[in-house]
Structures are given as C-alpha cells and as structure tokens.
C-alpha cells in the first residue's frame, strides 16, 4: 500500500502515470475537480492550450527511493509543474496528483515544487497557483519530504514578501493533510470546494494515536464536518468556497489573486488576533455544528447538505469568514 502521513488520503494508485489523452480544455471545465487528474485540472483551470510543463513525464525524473520498497514509480513523481496563462496573465502552476501515492511529498515531488517557487521570484508571474492533493509526507522518503515542506514554506514567504500572490486550491481526493496543510496555511489565499479537506493530522492518524472515541475515522460525516471545505470556509480557514469544477476554481483563483494580503507584520498581527479570537470563542466546542451555531448560522445541522447558493448566503453573513489576515 502506498503511504503518506495520512493513510486515509491514500487511494488506489501507484500505476505509472503517462501523459493524458489530448482533449479540449473548454470541454473539461465542467468536470468534477475531485475526480480529475492533476493534468486535467491544470488544463481546464488555465486558458485553453497555454499550459507548458517543466520536467514532464518524458524526462522520467522518477523517485530514486521507491524501488527499495518494491513500489512502482511515476514519471512525474505525482506532481505537475509548469507555466500557463490565466485570463491572459502569466502564472506558474503546480498540481499534485492524489492518485499516485496519495499525492505525498517525496524527494523529487518536493523538489519540483521548490524549483518552481524559487524561479517565481525571478519570473514574477501574476500569481503562483498550487493545486493541493496530498496526504502529507511520503513515508518511504520521509526526511526528504519533510525538509521539502519547510523549503516550500520559506520560498512562499519570500514570494509573498516580494508581492507575488501564492494561491492554494484545495479540492482533490487526498485533501491537504500533514505538511500539505501547513503549506496551505502559508499561502496568501485559499479556495476550497466541499470535498476539499484541510488538516494536519488525518482521521486515521488521530484514531490510531488517541482511539476511536477521540476520532472515529469511519464516521465520514464527522470527517467532512471537522476538516471539510464548508467548515474551513465558515471559520475563515479558507477564503473562497467553490463548486467542484474547474470553472469554479478558475473563478475563485481570479478573484483571490486580486485580493491577496501583504506578507508583513501588520498581516501577521491581524492573523494572530484572528486565530486567538477563534480559540477564545470556540475553544470549548466539541463539534463543528456548535461552532457554526455560535457563528450565527441559523440552522447548523443543515449546513452539510446545503446547496452552493444557500451556503454562499450563509457565508456572507458570517463575519469570521471575511478577512485579510493570512
């Protein structure tokens, strides 16, 4: 079984991924983001035909470590990086492939993201987009993955300080877990779909360490309620909530690029105050529904089943969901 720090995020995968069949991006903007591959997401997110991949599958930069574990490799090590245009403006894009080892950070996988982020400091694109789909660190390459996450966070901080918006999009099947959740928290803005999950410890990890009474990982409703897109959006852990489509994420990305906060003392002081207030106000809540009630949501129990339009109206009334403090 492929492994990451969140075993829950690991789904079928491990086959050697080749290039996708050619197709028109416009035909794909309505497909499910959750179901799509990393390449399909990038192609549908960006202006049609503008994506050019760096170090693509034909270069065959595979993991030097997986064979030691008798595990298959992918020619892209589970991440796609390159340049494209978004509404005509140049962007750099990284997209993780959750179907290969849970999108987990291995040595090559991490290094591709680092190379892209470092180059962005010179390229100065209109934005860097990170399409998260990761269970965290790839345990077979744990030290390399962990270090790469730290390198990515340092590089993102440098980019943001230089005025380049770094925007995270979370809607993949593996979510943004472990170190992926920390990188997401370093981005200037985050868009999330209902099926996007953002957390550090995954459900199975908590259950393994603390028992099913603390977190029953088989209770899927609990997982979505605690870590899913709607909760993150309502408490201000994400800045946009969008449909599970490339068109939805594209619209969200364009909106978020235009209002990325500065990376300075004022922003971090505001984030400190925002997070401290959250803990003071909700620290005694046992369940997300209690938090939603205190946020002023009229019918908290209806949130999980709420349609996009109704949820947008709900979010609009919640003060905590709107801030520049990230």
């Amino acid at each position: 079984m492929p492994a990451s720090t969140d075993p829950d995020a690991v789904l079928s995968g491990g086959d050697e991924a080749g290039p996708p069949p050619p197709a028109r991006a416009t035909a794909r903007t309505g497909m499910s983001w959750y179901e799509a591959s990393a390449r399909q997401r990038v192609a549908a997110l960006c202006d049609a035909g503008t994506f050019a991949e760096f170090l693509g599958p034909t270069e065959r930069r595979t993991s030097p470590h997986l064979p030691l574990f008798d595990l298959p490799r992918a020619f892209d090590d589970g991440i796609v990086v390159g340049r494209a245009r978004l509404d005509g403006k140049p962007v750099l894009v990284a997209a993780q492939e959750g179907r290969f080892m849970g999108g987990a950070f291995g040595e090559v996988h991490g290094a591709k993201l680092i190379g892209l982020l470092r180059a962005a400091l010179q390229v100065r694109p209109a934005a860097v987009l990170i399409l998260f789909d990761t269970g965290g660190v790839r345990l077979q390459e744990a030290n390399a993955g962990e270090t790469a996450i730290a390198e990515a966070m340092r590089a993102i901080a440098a980019l943001r300080a230089a005025g380049v918006p770094v925007i995270g999009l979370v809607g993949g099947r593996a979510g943004a877990y472990g170190g992926g959740g920390l990188i997401a928290g370093t981005c200037a803005r985050l868009a999330v779909s209902e099926s996007g999950r953002i957390s550090v410890s995954g459900p199975e990890v908590i259950e393994t360490n603390r028992g099913a009474e603390e977190f029953d990982s088989r209770d899927r409703a609990l997982v979505w309620r605690t870590m899913g897109g709607k909760h993150r959006r309502l408490i201000g852990g994400a800045d946009a909530f969008c449909d599970d489509t490339a068109a939805g994420f594209r619209a969200a990305a364009l909106d978020l690029i235009a209002r990325a906060p500065a990376f300075d003392l004022a922003t971090l002081e505001a984030e400190q105050a925002r997070l401290a207030a959250r803990i003071a106000r909700f620290g005694d809540c046992r369940d997300a529904a209690e938090i939603w009630a205190r946020l002023g949501v009229n019918d908290p129990d209806a949130v999980p089943a709420m349609e996009a339009a109704a949820f947008a109206e709900t979010v609009a009334r919640v003060e905590e969901a709107h801030h520049d403090a990230r």
Partner: peptide
Amino acid sequence: MSRRDELLGLNECLAHLAKALLLADQA
C-alpha cells in the same frame, strides 16, 4: 493530535508560527 485542534484550525496556527519566524528572518 486531536479532534479539537483540527476543528480549530491547527494547520493555520502552525503555519502562522512558521510565518512569524520567516517574517522575523526577512526583517
């Protein structure tokens, strides 16, 4: 590792600490 920490956005809090250190470095 707890339900409460994840409910309250542990990823944001840990990232915030790292960002504070990175900002200090930049400063």
